[in-house]
Design a protein around this nucleic acid. Structure first.
Length: 841
RNA sequence: GCGCUCGUGCUGAAAUUGGUAAACAGACUGGACUUAAAAUCCAGCGGGAUUCGUCCCUUGUCGGUUCAAGUCCGACCGAGCGCACCA
C-alpha cells in the first residue's frame, strides 16, 4: 500500500536535484532569452519566518515557470548580513557578531533548502564577507574621487549613557531604547552620498517604470518632493549687507506679506539675531520649540528686535523666530502671508499681525486658501493687480531677476544620504586621516579594510574606535602617521548593489564584469515587501546612477518589474490577563477558543505575524507535518500575492488532503507519466478531453504571467475535480491528462510532481519543457451566445461562430422556448458578434 | 488635514477588463460507510417566491453615463496604507 510520505519524498528529490545539479546557471547562453528573478535577500536573524516562505515561493514559481519555458533563468540567494542585531547579540550573549551571523546563515540556508527552492547555491553571497565588501569599498573610493561621497557636519541621535549614535528607530519617545537615557542632538562629522544631485533624474524616470506599482512610484515621488518656486532676498533694516533668503512656491503673494519667520535653528540666530533675551526664551521654551512636527501643535513665536524691508514696497516687516518653520526645508525662513496660508494666519492671529488679502475676495473673507486650478485675479498687489495668479507668478519672478531681489528656484525634499554608522558590524569606510590633515582613500593594494576579529563589545561606544590598535596606520606613500575612519557603512549601502554581484558572484578582481551585467541586468522581476518602497529601492536606483558617473557601466534602472507582496497574517490571542498567547496553545472547540486549562481565550484581529504578538506559525513545524509542497501550494492558493495572506490551519490541512488524494489515486491506478507525442491518434472523446487540457495550459500560463497564482490553483482544482468525477476515460488518455496536470502543478509542488512523473520518464521534471497548446486546435466550434432582454440575461445558446445578427434571429425564431421574444414589440436590437444579443422592448 | 488603494456570501476569494455575479476553496448543515470516532465519499450552502418547470432581488450607500455597470463617472459612508506645520 502506498501512502503520501512527504518527508521521504521531499528529502529524496532534494538530494537528487543537488546530485544532478539541475539548478546550475550557465553564464552565457546566447540561444536563450534571459530571465533574472530576484526576491529581496533576507537578514540572517536566526530563523526563516512565514513571510520568507511566501516571498521565496513566489519567486520560485516564476523561476520554475520561465525555466521550463526555455528561458535562461537566474534565481540567486544571499544574505544581508551586516547590521545591528548581530552587534546587540554580541553585547548580550558575548558572542562574536561574525560567529553569530554564520550560525544563523547555516540554519536559515538549511531551512530554505527544505522549501525546495530552485536556487544555484554556488552563487550564494553574503554582504559581511570580505569577498563582498572589498568591492564595495572600491565603489566608495570611486564615489569619493568623483565627489559623490563627501564629509559634512550633521546632527545625530546621541545616547550619552551608552556613548553611541542611535538610528531613528532606536529612539523611543526621545529616549534610548536600551539605556533609557534622554537622547541628545550631537553634531558629528559624517559621510554622505550626494543623492540630491540626482533628484530630478530619479523623479522623472519614475514614469518609465511601467511595471512598478503606482503606489510605490507615488511614495518615491513624495519622498523626492519637488517644489517649484522662488527665492526672495529680504534686507534687514539697519544691518548693512545682511539678507534673509526665503523660499516660496507662491511668489505672487509677496504683497500680502506681513512678517518674516525663521527657524529657531537658523544660522542667523547664532549670529546677528542672537542676544540674551533669545537665549533665555530658547531655554525656557525648549520643549515647545522642538516638539516633533505635527499640524496641531501650538504656534510658538519669538519677536526679534529687527525688521526686514519688503523689497518691492519698502514696508518694514517684523522678523520672528517660529517653531513651525523647519530648518530642514527650503532656506529655513519664510515670509508670512496670513490671508492665504493657514499656518501664517494662525501665527498672525496670535501676534496681532496684519492680514491682507491679495486675491479677488467678493465675500470679504479674512482668510481663504487658493488652489492652482482656481487661478484667481490679484488685488492689493500694486502692479500685479487684475492679473491672473498664474501670469502674476511668472511676471513677479522675472521682476525679481531684473532687480536682483530674488530668483526662480526649484527645491527637493530629498536630502543627501548619510551613510556613516558609529558601529562595528558593518563595512569599514576605506579612508585614512593623515597627521597633516589630508583625507585619503585607502590604496587599492590594501583593500579590503577588514574588521578586526578581536573587538571588545562590553565597553560603551564604537568598538572600532575603542580598539587598541586597529585604527592606527601609516600612509604608505609618505610614511606619515594616519588614523583609519572608524565609521562603518549603513547596511542600505550593502543592499544597493547585491543584485549586480549575483551576476558575477565569484569574480575576485572586480565586483562584476561588464559582460555579466550585459548578460543579466536588469532584474526582470523583483519581489519584496512594501516596507522597502522608498529607502532600499530609491537608494538602489541612485546607486546605479552613481556607479555610472564613476567608471562603471550598469543600467540606470535596476528593477524592470516590481511585485510588492502582502504580509502573512494570523489571528491574535490573549488570556484574561491581557497576555499574548501562541496559536499552538489554543484549542478550538465549537467555534470557541480555550487554553489547555479550560480558560477561555480572547480572540483579537488578524495581524502580521510577529514575535511580540506571538501570532507566529513556524515554517519548520509546518514543513515537518505537511511538507514543503503543501506549504508552497497553500501560500499560493488563498490570496493574490499583493494582498495580505491570512494563515489558516484548515487551509493548509485541506491542501495536504488534496495532494494526498491525488497521490493515492495515481498510485492505485498504476499511473504512468505520458507525454503528448506518445499519444495515439484521437477519437472524438479524445479530442474533447485533449482540448480541455490544452485550454487549461493556456489559461494557467496566463494566470502565472499575471501573478494570479490563486486563480491558477483554482483552475488546477477544477481540472482534477473533473478527472476524478469522470471514471470512464481510457487509461492511456487519463495518464496523459494527469501528466499535464503534474507538469503544471510542478511550479508549486516540485517534489510531488517529480515523484509521480518519475516512472516512464528519464528526465527530471525540472528539465522538461513546458506543455504546449495549439491555438488553432483549442478553438471551439460552438460558442456560447448570451440572449438578453433589456440588458438582463434570459438564456444562453450554443451557436456556430461568426454568425451575423440575422442568422442568430433566424435561429431564435425556430427555438420553441425563445421564439416568444418576437411576440413583443422590439424597439432596438444590440448585437455583439460571438458574445451577446440584447433585445430592448 | 492631504494623497493613494480597497469595500462582492458566514470566511479567503473569482469574474476573459463594460456583456452568464459568487468559479475554486474553507467553515457549517444533512446523508453514506463505521460498534464509535477520525479519514473518505455524496448532497446542500447570498436572499425571497414557487404549481419544483422556473421566476424575482442581490456586489458599502445615493445618483449619473450606457441597450447593458461589481467593473466607467460624481457625492457620501467605512477600512487600510502613505505623507504630514514642506512655505
Amino acid at each position: 500500500m502506498h501512502f503520501y510520505n512527504h518527508k521521504q519524498i521531499e528529502q529524496k528529490w532534494q538530494n537528487f536535484w543537488v546530485e544532478k545539479d539541475v539548478y546550475n546557471v550557465s553564464q552565457s547562453s546566447s540561444s536563450k532569452k534571459k530571465y533574472y528573478i530576484l526576491e529581496m535577500f533576507p537578514y540572517p536573524s536566526g530563523k526563516i519566518h512565514m513571510g520568507h516562505v511566501r516571498n521565496y515561493t513566489l519567486g520560485d514559481v516564476l523561476s520554475r515557470y520561465f525555466k521550463s519555458n526555455n528561458y535562461n533563468v537566474l534565481h540567486p540567494m544571499g544574505w544581508d548580513s551586516f547590521g545591528m542585531p548581530a552587534e546587540n547579540a554580541a553585547f548580550e550573549n558575548k558572542t562574536n557578531p561574525k560567529e553569530w551571523t554564520k550560525k544563523n546563515i547555516r540554519t536559515m540556508r538549511n531551512q530554505l533548502k527544505k522549501i525546495g527552492l530552485a536556487i544555484d547555491w554556488k552563487r550564494e553571497i553574503s554582504t559581511s564577507s570580505p569577498d563582498y565588501y572589498k568591492h564595495q569599498q572600491q565603489f566608495f573610493i570611486e564615489f569619493f574621487k568623483k565627489g559623490i561621497a563627501y564629509k559634512k557636519d550633521s546632527f545625530v541621535n546621541w545616547d550619552p549613557v551608552d556613548n553611541t549614535v542611535l538610528a531613528n528607530e532606536q529612539v523611543v519617545e526621545g529616549k534610548g531604547w536600551r539605556s533609557g537615557a534622554e537622547i541628545e542632538k550631537k553634531k558629528l562629522s559624517q559621510w554622505f552620498l550626494k543623492i540630491s544631485d540626482f533628484s530630478e533624474d530619479l523623479l522623472s524616470n519614475l514614469t518609465n517604470l511601467n511595471d512598478w506599482p503606482e503606489k510605490v512610484k507615488f511614495m518615491q515621488k513624495n519622498w523626492i518632493g519637488k517644489s517649484d518656486g522662488a527665492e526672495i532676498f529680504f534686507k534687514i533694516h539697519d544691518k548693512d549687507n545682511t539678507f534673509i533668503t526665503v523660499f516660496t512656491t507662491r511668489p505672487e503673494t509677496i504683497f500680502g506679506a506681513s512678517f518674516i519667520a525663521l527657524s529657531f535653528d537658523h544660522p542667523l540666530c547664532e549670529d546677528v539675531l542672537s542676544n540674551d533675551r533669545l537665549k533665555k526664551f530658547k531655554k525656557e521654551n525648549k520643549e515647545k520649540i522642538y516638539t516633533t512636527a505635527k499640524t496641531d501643535v501650538e504656534k510658538i513665536g519669538f519677536k526679534t528686535d529687527y525688521m526686514a524691508i519688503h523689497p518691492l514696497n519698502g514696508k518694514k516687516l517684523p522678523i520672528f523666530l517660529a517653531n513651525f518653520v523647519l530648518m530642514e526645508y527650503g532656506t529655513g525662513s519664510i515670509f508670512g502671508c496670513p490671508a492665504h496660508d493657514k499656518r501664517d494666519y494662525d501665527f498672525a492671529k496670535k501676534f496681532n499681525l496684519e492680514i491682507k488679502t491679495v486675491f479677488s475676495n467678493p465675500e470679504k473673507k479674512e482668510f481663504f486658501e487658493v488652489n492652482d486650478d482656481e487661478d484667481p485675479v490679484l488685488i492689493n498687489s500694486n502692479f500685479l493687480n487684475n492679473k491672473r495668479m498664474s501670469k502674476a507668478r511668472k511676471e513677479i519672478i522675472s521682476i525679481f531677476n531684473e532687480r536682483n531681489i530674488g530668483k526662480k528656484k526649484t527645491i527637493f525634499k530629498l536630502r543627501d544620504w548619510g551613510v556613516s554608522r558609529q558601529r562595528y558590524w558593518g563595512c569599514p569606510i576605506p579612508i585614512i586621516y593623515r597627521e597633516d590633515g589630508a583625507i585619503l582613500p585607502v590604496s587599492d593594494k590594501e583593500l579590503p579594510v577588514m574588521l578586526p576579529d578581536d573587538a571588545n563589545f562590553e565597553q560603551k561606544g564604537n568598538p572600532l574606535d575603542l580598539h587598541p590598535t586597529w585604527k592606527y596606520t601609516t600612509c604608505n606613500e609618505t610614511g606619515m602617521k594616519a588614523i583609519r575612519e572608524t565609521d562603518t557603512l549603513d547596511t542600505f549601502f550593502d543592499s544597493s548593489w547585491y543584485f549586480l554581484r549575483f551576476c558575477d558572484p565569484l569574480n575576485s578582481k572586480t565586483g562584476f564584469s561588464n559582460k555579466s551585467i550585459e548578460n543579466w541586468m536588469p532584474v526582470d522581476q523583483y519581489i519584496g515587501g512594501i516596507e522597502h518602497a522608498i529607502l532600499h529601492l530609491l537608494y538602489s536606483r541612485f546607486f546605479m546612477r552613481a556607479l555610472n558617473k564613476s567608471k562603471y557601466d550598469v543600467p540606470n534602472e535596476p528593477f524592470k518589474s516590481l511585485l510588492t507582496q502582502g504580509m502573512v497574517c494570523h489571528e491574535t490571542y490573549k488570556d484574561k490577563d491581557n497576555g499574548w498567547i501562541e496559536p499552538s496553545e489554543v484549542i478550538k472547540k465549537n467555534n470557541k477558543f480555550f487554553l489547555l486549562n479550560g480558560d477561555e481565550v480572547i480572540r483579537g484581529r488578524s495581524e502580521k505575524m510577529s514575535k511580540s504578538k506571538k501570532n507566529i506559525i513556524d515554517p519548520d513545524t509546518i514543513i515537518e507535518e505537511f511538507g514543503a509542497d503543501t506549504a508552497r501550494l497553500f501560500m499560493m492558493s488563498d490570496s493574490p500575492p499583493e494582498r495580505d495572506l491570512e494563515w489558516s490551519d484548515e487551509g493548509i490541512r485541506s491542501v495536504w488532503k488534496y495532494l494526498n488524494k491525488i497521490f493515492l489515486h495515481l498510485k492505485k491506478n498504476q499511473f504512468e507519466f505520458t507525454k503528448e507525442d506518445e499519444l495515439d491518434a484521437q477519437t472524438e472523446e479524445h479530442l474533447a478531453l485533449v482540448k480541455k487540457a490544452q485550454k487549461l495550459i493556456k489559461s494557467f500560463n496566463n494566470d502565472i504571467e499575471n501573478f494570479k497564482f490563486n486563480s491558477a490553483v483554482a483552475k488546477l482544482r477544477e481540472f482534477s475535480n473533473f478527472l476524478f468525477s469522470n471514471e470512464k476515460i481510457e487509461t492511456r488518455l487519463e495518464n496523459y491528462l494527469w501528466s499535464i496536470f503534474l507538469r503544471l502543478i510542478y511550479v508549486f509542488t516540485p517534489h510531488f510532481s517529480e515523484e509521480l512523473s518519475k516512472n516512464n520518464n528519464n528526465k527530471s521534471i525540472c528539465d522538461l519543457s513546458w506543455p504546449k497548446y495549439n491555438e488553432k486546435y483549442i478553438k471551439e466550434d460552438l460558442i456560447k451566445l448570451v440572449i438578453q432582454i433589456n440588458g438582463k440575461k434570459k438564456a444562453i445558446v450554443d451557436v456556430e461562430e461568426n454568425l451575423n445578427e440575422n442568422e442568430v434571429i433566424k435561429l431564435l425564431k425556430i427555438d420553441n422556448n425563445l421564439n416568444k421574444i418576437f411576440s413583443f414589440k422590439i424597439k432596438k436590437t444590440i448585437f455583439i458578434k460571438n458574445k451577446i444579443i440584447n433585445f430592448v422592448l
